[in-house]
């Protein structure tokens, strides 16, 4: 029971980290970046290449994956989304799906469709408490998630760039008139989201060590679900939504049905959205009369 809970929190932490990328980008650019899941996959491949082919140690290869994904995130925003800044949200959505397929097929060309065995990035002994064994991967994942949450919260609330981000997410026009570079702020948000996606990619592939061009797709959609679940646009919402979703998934697998676990996850989402359409921590849009 407890080990299920810890596994759930661990999986949920990964969802939470991915969901942050969705929610931050949505908050600031008001768009759903469906290519986010595939950035995770690229992050996984980068870490895989640097460790397996180049023989780099863990930390540098994670940093390498983060750097590549950060740049990829900025590049995607510049090339695909920035020209559509004033276009309808439907056009942006379709573009995002297009970018997603583009990344998947690029990965297919480069690394082929054969699954790669992801090296174990966490070479630490498992922790045994009483008769429960907790995998070190789970612990590292949870700690990484907590650290990221703290840094991100401090960043968005206490630094000028974080404040600029929140200002842009509230009122782009007013922010611009106060001298804030909205484009740079949006780029920065994509960069942060994609950097986090790389970390999520490494953690995900360490926990489930098969790497394919479609690896990012399902976690991407689940994390999107988590972001909506928690209230899209809200950073604490993404954290809460991600962790709850992970716990629900693991418990569903353990106690109900392995095959139905995904269905259970999405069923819970539907129920939450019926009861509270803005998500758990989403705020109602105040209407000015």
């Amino acid at each position: 029971m407890l080990s299920y809970l810890i596994n759930g929190i661990s999986l949920g932490s990964v969802y939470a980290i991915i969901a942050l990328g969705y929610t931050m980008v949505y908050g600031i650019a008001k768009m759903l970046n469906f290519a986010h899941g595939d950035v995770i996959m690229i992050g996984g491949y980068m870490a895989f290449c640097s460790t397996s082919y180049l023989g780099w140690p863990v930390i540098p290869s994670v940093l390498f994956a983060m750097t590549v994904c950060t740049m990829l995130g900025i590049l995607i925003e510049r090339l695909a989304y920035k020209p559509l800044r004033d276009a309808s949200s439907l056009a942006v959505l379709i573009t995002a799906i297009g970018v997603s397929y583009f990344l998947q097929n690029m990965a297919l060309l480069i690394w082929s469709s054969n699954p790669k065995a992801f090296p174990n990035m966490v070479n630490l002994p498992n922790v045994v408490i009483g008769d429960i064994q907790i995998s070190s991967v789970a612990i590292v994942t949870i700690i990484a998630c907590i650290v990221i949450m703290i840094i991100l919260t401090l960043f968005t609330t206490r630094t000028k760039l974080g404040k600029a981000m929140r200002a842009v997410s509230e009122d782009k026009g007013a922010a611009q008139l106060m001298g804030i570079n909205v484009n740079a702020t949006i780029s920065m948000t994509f960069a942060i989201g994609s950097g986090l996606a790389a970390i999520a990619g490494v953690l995900l592939c360490t926990a489930y060590p098969t790497l394919m061009p479609t690896t990012g797709a399902m976690p991407g959609i689940k994390a999107f679900t988590a972001a909506v679940f928690g209230g899209i646009g809200s950073i604490p919402g993404a954290m809460l939504g991600g962790i709850l979703l992970g716990i629900i998934e693991i418990f569903g697998k353990a106690y109900i049905s392995t095959q139905l676990s995904d269905a259970i996850v999405f069923a819970v989402l539907i129920i939450v959205l019926i009861v509270k359409p803005t998500g758990l921590l989403g705020k109602k849009m105040a209407e000015k009369v």
Binding site: R166, A167, D171, A174, M178, G179, I180
Partner: peptide
């Protein structure tokens, strides 16, 4: 009025000070 409603008063001023 177009303030950043969710930010504090001080943070609103700091947005002005951004540059």
């Amino acid at each position: 009025i177009r303030l950043f409603d969710k930010l504090t008063v001080e943070d609103n001023v700091k947005i002005g000070l951004h540059n």
